[in-house]
Structures are given as C-alpha cells and as structure tokens.
Nucleic acid binder design. Structure first.
Lengths: 399, 399
DNA sequence: TTGAATATTCAAGTAAGTTGAATTAATAAG
DNA sequence: CTTATTAATTCAACTTACTTGAATATTCAA
C-alpha cells in the first residue's frame, strides 16, 4: 500500500494562477469573515479588481455569499462576504480494523452527519462496499440541495508500505499490501479522494474547526490503536519521504525499558497509548472493550487507571519536550480515541521540561492542549482534509 | 534577535508566475543538465514556447549557457543548456562566538573562496565590520568578471529569541538580543540577506552540492558548539513557528541521566557533541582547542576519545531512530565541526533501532551517511541557501 | 453644503502563457 | 539516393487573468 507519490516541480500558467488565487481568497475569507474586497486585496497583494473577479466566480460557484454592507467610518460601506457553509460538502471516511466511520462536513467544517458501520473483515472488497454504503447514507436526502461535493478524505492507519515495524501489524490493515487505496476509493466513491493517516487527519480537523484554527505550525499527538503524530508546519501537512512521518509511538523514551511489539525496548507506545492502558488494566484483571469503558473507569476513579496515567505522564512529557524541540510548534494538541477527562488529566499531570525552545516568554497559545474534535476526530479529519485542500493555498510570502 | 517573520498568504500574478517558472526551469536544468527545451517543457508541464522564452531570458541574465547540439535519434538535434557556473555567485558568512568564516560559491555550488577572521567580541558593530571585510576580500579581484551577486546567507547559532534553554548561552551570541540581523547585514553587505542556523545551512549545503543532491526530504545532524538538526521536507526548509526547529541537542535520550547546562537531565548534547567530547577528554586531563586537536587524538588512537565515541553511539543511535520515525527522511546526514574520521567511526558504531519506519525493504540511500561538505559546511551552507532560493521553486504537483 | 475618504465598478492595457503552423535537421525506409 | 517520418525549435496569433486609471457611490467631517 502506497499513498505518497514523488512530486514533480511544475510551472504555473494563467489557469493555475487563478486556481491558486481562488484558494487565497477563500482562505482569507475563512480566516477573517465577514470581509470585503478591498481588505482581501490588501492582505493578499492582489488588485481589487482581481479579487472582485474571483469573488464573482466564487459566488457563482456558491462557495461565497454576501454578508451585507457594513459602514466602518468614512467611505462607501464595505460589502462583506462570508463562506457559504452549505455551498459544498466533503465526505470523511475512517477505516479501522474492526469498523468504519463516516462523516459529512460542510465548507465551514460543521458536521452534518456521522455514522458507524461494523467491518467484518479488512479485505479491500469489503471496505469498499461499506464505503459505498457510507457514501449513500451520508448523501441521502441531500440530493435536493445543490451542494457541491468536494471529495472524500479516507483515513487509514499507517505506517504505509513495508517498513521495519513488524509488530505494528495489529494496527495496519491486512490485504491492502499491494493495492493503491487512492485509486480504489476514487473508483468506489466516484469523487476525488485523498488518503491520510489518522494523526494527520486529526491535526487538520483541529485546524479547520478546532483549537488549531488560525495556527500555521502545530503538532497533534493522536491516541489511536497506537500513538501517532500529525504535523502541520507553516500550513503544510508533513508526510515524510515515504508517507510515514509522525510515527511517534515507536520513539524510544525509556532506553532498555518495556518491550514493545516492534522489538525495541522503551517505545513511547508501551507507556502512553490505549494499548498501554489496556495492558495495564488487563494486568489488574480488567478487560477493556470500547473507549467508553475507559471513561466509566475514570469516572469511577479506578485506581489502576489512575496509576496508568501517572506512569504515562513521564514518557509523554518527554515526548512533548522532544516534539517542541524538533518542530518548534505554536502548540501541541492531545486527542483521539481517549476520553476527554482522561486527556485533561494527562495534560494536567505533564511535567514539561524547562529546557525547551517552547519555554518561551510571552507565549499566547498553551504549550499543550486537548483537541476539540472529540472521538470522531479522524473521520472528521478526513473531510477536513478535503476542505483544507480546497481552501488553503501554498505560496506564502514574508511580511 | 528574531529571524522568522509571520508569513502572509499572497496571490499570484503574471510577474510572480514568471519568477516561479524561471526557478522551475533553473531547477530542472540543474538537476538534469545538459537538457533541451522540449524535455524541460515535458517535465515542467509548461509549453515549449514558454520554456523557450524563459531560457532566452535566463541566457540574457547569464545564468544559463548553451551546451551544444546533440543528436539523439531522429529529428532535429536537441540544443542543450546548462547552468552557467560563473554567471552568479553567493556569499556565505558564518558567525561563531570566536570567529567568522566566509565563503564564495558559484551557481553550481563550487567553492571559489574561503576565509577565516578572528572575532574579538560578539558586539553587532564588530561582527558587521568583519562581515564587511569578508565581503571585500571575497569579491576582490572579481570586479572584472560580470558575475551577478545573488546575495548573502548569514549563519548564526540558534536558538533565536528568548527561549527556555538558558544554559545555551554558551552557543548564542551576546549583544544581539534586540537586533534584527537581516536588516543589519542587508545594510552592511548591501545585498539581499537570509539568516539561518548552522544545522539548516549545512543541510542545504549538502543538497546543493553534497550527498543530499536530488533528495527532497532529509535530515542533517550538525556538530557545532552544541548539536543541531537541519530538516528539509519535500524540498522545503523547516524552521518551526519561531525559527527554532531542530533543537535536537536538548532532546532527552537518557531520562535522569547527565545534567545538561539547560537544567534537564539526559539531553543528547551531554553525550554526543563537541562539548561532550571536550568534557570527557578534560576529565582525562586533555584540553581540546581546535577541531584538529580531536583529529590528532583520533589518529593517535587516544583511548579516552574512543571511549567517548562508544558512549556517544547509543544516544546518537536513539536520536537517529527518533528522527527517522518523526520525519521519515530519505537519509540522515552527520556532519559539522568534527573530523571526518570521527564521524565515520561514529556512524559505523551506530546500532540503529530495527523498529523504525526507515528499516524498509528496498532502500536506495543509506540510513545514515557522512556529509560531504566538510568543516566549512556552515559558511558554504549560507551561500548554498542563496543559490537554493534562486533555483528552487515552491509549487510541486503529484505525478 | 462641500470636501475628503473609502469601496466598488468600468474599461482599457499588459504580461505571460497556449496553440497551431512553418522550419530545420536527423534517421529510417524504399 | 530519394523520400518519408520524427522530433526540436521558431513564428505568429490568440487567450487568460492580472493591473491600472478613471468614474461612481456613499459616508463622515468641517
């Protein structure tokens, strides 16, 4: 399975320029809506006329709508625009070994629909037919509305391709080794498709509609089956050369420590992850099924769970420290398939290293915070990726 | 001191499009020279005519030159072009607490001139006057040649701004806290200036003319005063939100281990860095002055130095593992102010974790290799950054 | 009431890319 | 040896999308 392809340096022409500028305008509207032509022109460096033409086109496509005139001091009152939330939708699909989740999200990142479907097996044919079902139920009853479907974001557990983490088989999908997921889903869903890992999708979800709104550089530590890291650097999603960046679960934080399924000792994942929590509780004779089991245990003040949190805190603090030192993000977000209360408790118990580039005077964002997108983060993230792609342009200039 | 400014999303127009396309053409020529118009057009997605116009312009600017016709099967023989190595030069200046280094590099990345000047103190006024002297001697005797000066890359030790690593004062410059280095050097050198940290500059040097030629995603572990990490991801230099990404020296690899100057215990820098080596040797009564002292000791087979290498190997292996897991690079390069022989020995002694996304079947590049740019890497890197900026475009498309 | 400030629109101009036909030169085929 | 085919390049016309400058609309301030 391979989701990242080599990139080719391409030239630009009038058509690509317009595409880029549409994204620029959409991006600025999203960030500062409602907003008028003149202001967009100022911050984008385009002429008012160019912005005007693009807005006309976006209005035609129903991605933007007028938001009334507003007088602000002298001069002609500004005719403001905002995103037309219902002008377009994106589908998000998360594939887990045992189930699939679907989410439909509008241009503003608002969730319109979510669903869960059991997954009897992981064969591509099964996954694809469930994906079709999710597509159908998500779009059902929306045929009347003339909403543009931007595409689908499919979230699958990494790592992708044949890599050295052999024990990670428990989180990877079987039967997908030789397939091209993008082509498969594109065919099945009949729309543009992007494929991403859960942590990255979660990060983008937080950027489109969560605690990372407006941030250009941040990291998301995602509790999935293992532990993943989603990285957005200067507005760009980081994937690595082979699509496997952010494998933080197998970073060694306790040399010579616990044996991990990957064969190494002291991986972060053996301390801070759902697997770690489950193992810890199983040792105490408590079996964990769903995430709500953990929530119940936490609410009941279960001593073993509390001990796990204590044990996870140190390694996790160390991981946050290294993320800060390596990526220098505006903030680190914690989230994924772990109850909010547990995440909050974990965050509160962190003892962040003082010697970090992040221990900076005059910070505005907290060093670590909990994600706002909740349990469905990944599926929402898939959809958010599509929204993100339509709205976020690539070229930035220094101020 | 602040070198990173917030970026603003800007629109594109005909002028900016041309600038981008010039870089695209230059980039493709650099990568596959000698090369003809038609091939450039094919790989860049531009029309032949567009490429033709751009080549005419670049030839006019003396950045490209004809490389003769070459028959390749049927049809009109291709008129090939190559970079005009001497068409333009870039100045690199490295500022260290005790000395400054200068390098002049041509468009092909070839070193034309290097120099070293002692630095009596770190006051901006002193640094600036030495920089002016370096500029003068570098350009001396080149006034006759009509070489375009693209700009200067100034390399300074990070971290920049007020951060939590208080003990890092030994590597940071004093008296620069409130100044704007870019403006200062731009004024002093009378040319466009970029400022970068040593590790990043070294990484770019390897990309322009070293072992990372042709790679889009890789990391460089740089032995400077401390230990830094330069990251190039998908062709883009990674700086972090505040310009301090890559502070790998203060990543904790041995929890509860040696006390670092930063106040934490077990930082990588206390095991694998010049400071660590110096401390280790000082304990044995051996004082280290310059880097050549280390080289002599190594050649003499000094037992204490060998012991240090042994001690450094474990933490360094762990660091390489985490870099691989977090960034998923095509390769990790080791280099900087450490003798080649020591670097080679260090690399040979690494025991890389098997459980890493980098332990992949069918690798083409080695997981870890030594940098090719030698001791002057950083100064060369400064110049390379300028070359890189003129040649590397930003927009890439999936194949 | 008048002038200045600001946003927007209209109309013309420009830069840079694309397209299609013509030209040139090499190889392959008859 | 002649002719056809192939491929690179150039020429000229066309198209797209941005910019510029003038005109218009609306509000605030004097």
């Amino acid at each position: 399975m391979k989701i990242s392809s080599p990139r080719r340096i391409v030239g630009s022409n009038a058509e690509r320029t317009r595409l880029h500028n549409r994204q620029v305008v959409l991006g600025h509207v999203r960030e500062r809506q409602p907003i008028g032509r003149a202001e967009i022109a100022r911050i984008s460096g385009l002429s008012i006329q160019a912005v005007s033409n693009i807005i006309a086109e976006l209005e035609e496509d129903r991605l933007l709508i007028e938001a009334g005139r507003q007088s602000e001091g002298r001069g002609l009152p500004v005719l403001k625009y905002r995103l037309n939330a219902d002008g377009a939708v994106a589908l998000g699909i998360e594939v887990r070994p045992d189930a699939m989740f679907g989410a439909l999200v509008n241009l503003e990142g608002e969730t319109l629909f979510t669903t869960r479907e059991a997954l009897p097996d992981n064969a591509p044919s099964t996954v694809v037919s469930v994906a079709r079902r999710i597509r159908a139920s998500a779009l059902e009853g929306r045929c009347g509305k003339t909403q543009k479907i931007l595409g689908a974001g499919v979230v699958m557990p990494g790592p992708f391709g044949k890599v050295g983490i052999s024990g990670a088989g428990q989180s990877a999908l079987h039967g997908w080794e030789d397939s091209d997921p993008i082509a498969v889903f594109q065919e099945a869903l009949d729309m543009p498709v992007v494929v991403e890992n859960d942590a990255t999708a979660a990060a983008v979800a937080e950027r489109v509609r969560g605690v990372a709104t407006g941030l250009r550089t941040f990291c998301f530590i995602y509790f999935g089956a293992g532990l993943g890291l989603g990285v957005v650097a200067d507005g760009e999603v980081q994937r690595g050369a082979f699509g496997n960046a952010g494998e933080i679960g197998h970073v060694i934080v306790r040399p010579g420590g616990r044996l991990c399924a990957c064969g190494n000792h002291g991986c972060l994942e053996t301390y801070a992850s759902r697997i770690a929590a489950r193992t810890r509780l199983a040792d105490a004779g408590i079996e964990i099924g769903s995430a709500s089991d953990i929530e119940n245990l936490y609410n009941a003040g279960n001593a073993h769970l509390m001990e796990w949190i204590d044990e996870a805190s140190g390694p996790l603090s160390q991981a946050v420290g290294l993320i800060e030192n390596l990526f220098d993000p505006e903030t680190v977000i914690l989230g994924g398939a772990m109850p909010d209360a547990v995440l909050d408790h974990l965050i509160a118990s962190l003892e962040l290293p003082g010697g970090s580039v992040a221990a900076r005077a005059g910070r505005v964002t907290p060093r670590v915070q909990r994600g706002a997108c909740g349990r469905l983060t990944a599926a929402l993230g898939g959809a958010a990726l599509v929204i993100h792609d339509t709205i976020t342009p690539r070229i930035a200039a220094k101020t």
